[in-house]
Write a protein that binds this DNA or RNA. Structure first.
Lengths: 129, 129
DNA sequence: CTAGGACTACGAATAACTTCGTATATAATC
DNA sequence: GATTATATACGAAGTTATTCGTAGTCCTAG
């Protein structure tokens, strides 16, 4: 029996590992560790332990064939990110997508290109209704 | 000297309290507790302690005049929410507002009204550039 | 074959978050 | 004025998250 629906929500540390794996694809502990160390000091066994825990929780799957195990996220990046956004939406915005987006866009981090891209997305979504 | 820039990021439990206060305005512990209990079982002293801690951290300000102290968020709701969104943007979306919004909108929780409102916001933002 | 390096497993210390009980003070009620 | 209700303060237990050291395994170069 495969564990599922267990929530699967990554903690902060886990999320930083996921980010690396989303960008790299399936990876060994060493690869993730090397990448993480570019921005942050972090022991090898710390990353190892985290990835082991994530595999236990079902956040990562792991291939044990090679000596250095290869891990990969069990969920698609899309789904994981949608869950993260949905979670914040509930916890801080009373479930309102509109309000969340409002705050995302007014947080000066949105460029003109971003706005244009979002407008395009809106068009697509509207046309599907 | 006033403490500032201490990060100020609320934990989960703290966020649920903030949500109540955003909706109620300045409140006593009892008022927050009663509100929270509508959706979730929670001891009175638990809420008290949390709000005390939040005041220590600077998340809440408190008026001690009355016997029942009155608390209120130290930051505007706007700023707090922008910080929360910005935090998730960095931690999960590599700082991309566009990507975050994409996932917010495709998480089926956005209604046609939401989309229209967002489109309007886009217009406003664009015209300001 | 044996020393060194790279890997996993795992225990355990530390820190952060959450929860609540008990003590104590103040106000209201009879 | 004694009892009851309602406050705050605070210690501390329970839980989850984070970090790392140490031990043991396996591979590879000399």
């Amino acid at each position: 029996m495969i564990k599922q629906g267990k929530e699967l929500k990554p903690t902060n540390a886990e999320l930083s590992i996921l980010q690396v794996m989303w960008q790299r694809g399936p990876s060994t502990v060493r690869e993730v560790h090397d990448e993480l160390c570019k921005s942050r000091e972090m022991g090898y066994t710390t990353v190892l332990k985290l990835m082991q825990i994530m595999a236990e929780k079902g956040i990562l799957d792991r291939e044990e064939e090679a000596r250095a195990h290869v891990y990969k996220p069990s969920q698609s990046q899309e789904l994981a990110k949608r869950n993260l956004v949905g979670d914040l939406m509930d916890k801080a915005f009373g479930g309102s997508a509109q309000e969340l987006v409002m705050h995302a866009l007014t947080s000066k981090k949105a460029s003109s290109e971003d706005l244009a891209a979002i407008r395009k997305l809106l068009d697509e979504l509207e046309s599907k209704k």
